[in-house]
């Protein structure tokens, strides 16, 4: 499972695909202050990326991948 949910934190691991969008979406809807841990994230499908934009979770750890780190911090 590329997304591990623990209390208020979702850990995104490796490749988060469009199949995970629904679970992630529902999880965000249920949480008041969601947090995400992106340390081990290698790629995130656009559908999930835009969920991060919409729900604006607190990013508690940035991806180790340089370019991806940039993606998730430079949104408008």
């Amino acid at each position: 499972m590329p997304v591990e949910f623990k209390n208020n934190t979702a850990k995104l691991i490796d490749l988060v695909s469009i199949e995970d969008a629904d679970a992630l979406f529902n999880w965000f809807l249920e949480r008041k202050k969601p947090k995400v841990d992106l340390t081990e994230l290698c790629h995130i499908h656009t559908a999930c990326l835009q969920l991060l934009f919409v729900f604006k979770p607190e990013i508690i750890a940035h991806p180790e991948k340089e370019d991806l780190k940039y993606w998730l911090t430079t949104r408008q």
Binding site: A21, D22, F25, T46, L49, Q50
Partner: peptide, 11 residues
């Protein structure tokens, strides 16, 4: 957000 269509690209 609860009404969004997650399979529509808006990015």
């Amino acid at each position: 957000p609860s009404l969004m269509d997650i399979y529509q690209c808006i990015t």
